[in-house]
């Protein structure tokens, strides 16, 4: 690689990295420590943080409940229409969240098929919107993890007297744990950051349906930048933690794990 090429390459990359760092730092410089601590003591901000944590954790639990069986079936069973289901899982990932939100709004709205469930403009609505958008990340990740388990290992369990359920709980799940864990992290992060579908389904009602992202939007639009910044900084710290956890999990490959404590040997 010639020197001039290397310099121009570094320069272009440098511009990109610099841009990200500068933009993100603007969030930090937009507030002072005193302002920040003041904002996060406000009842509305605290309510938004709690609501976001509450809904995103509920989403993770529900995604585990529905997503693990879905991922297991997609990874291990052969059946007609499997490809269609597999593609279906990906749709919420590529679809704009606003479109997902609109679909939920119509499905649960006045004339909708689920209209008797009273979820619009409620916390339940937030959870449904976030689940719709975020759960595919868990299913994807868990499916890949299940697929990476040697088929013979599961067959061995069966011939040793383990039922399919016992095999799932004692062999497949432990061997897929890292894939599932990184799916959980991704789903949680996605649910926490969800805005479009949430706002569409649950609106922006302070103290009731105001999640952190909805709060950032509302406060920014109403000129209360310091509240937006405070919420954003908290979300950013969550995001960085997520990223670090995710990267760490990525370094341990599933199906390759040693027994407990063996990694230290």
């Amino acid at each position: 690689m010639s020197l001039s090429f290397r310099i121009s390459l570094s320069l272009i990359a440098g511009i990109f990295f610099g841009f990200i760092v500068v933009v993100l730092s603007c969030l930090l410089t937009a507030t002072s420590f005193a302002e920040f601590t003041g904002e996060i003591r406000s009842p509305e901000i605290i309510s938004a943080i709690l609501l976001s944590l509450e809904t995103s954790i509920a989403v993770v639990l529900l995604a585990l409940l529905f997503g693990i069986p879905a991922a297991y079936i997609l990874a291990t069973k052969r059946f007609k229409g499997k490809n269609i289901l597999d593609t279906l899982v990906d749709i919420p990932i590529v679809l704009p969240p606003l479109v997902c939100g609109l679909a939920i709004l119509i499905a649960f709205g006045g004339e909708g098929i689920f209209s008797r469930f009273d979820v619009l403009f409620t916390v339940k609505g937030i959870i449904i919107a976030q689940l719709f958008v975020a759960s595919p990340f868990l299913i994807r990740s868990a499916k890949t993890a299940f697929e990476s388990i040697d088929r013979d290992v599961m067959d061995a369990a069966r011939t040793l007297g383990a039922s399919e359920f016992y095999t799932l709980t004692k062999v497949s799940l432990p061997l897929a744990r890292n894939g599932i864990a990184s799916g959980v992290v991704m789903t949680w992060a996605r649910a926490l950051g969800e805005f479009g579908a949430t706002a569409m389904v649950a609106g922006c009602i302070p103290y009731r349906t105001e999640t952190m992202t909805v709060g950032i939007y509302m406060h920014a639009m109403s000129g209360d930048i310091s509240a937006s910044v405070a919420l954003s900084l908290i979300l950013m710290s969550f995001a960085f933690t997520t990223l670090i956890v995710f990267k760490y999990l990525g370094t341990i490959r599933d199906g390759n794990l040693g027994p407990r404590g063996a990694a230290a040997q």
Binding site: D150, V153, D155, A156, V171, L175, L257
Partner: peptide
């Protein structure tokens, strides 16, 4: 019926 596999198929997460 016991089964012994070509690739051993041991449980990697167990000792």
């Amino acid at each position: 019926i016991g089964f012994v596999f070509q690739n051993y198929a041991l449980f990697p997460h167990l000792n």
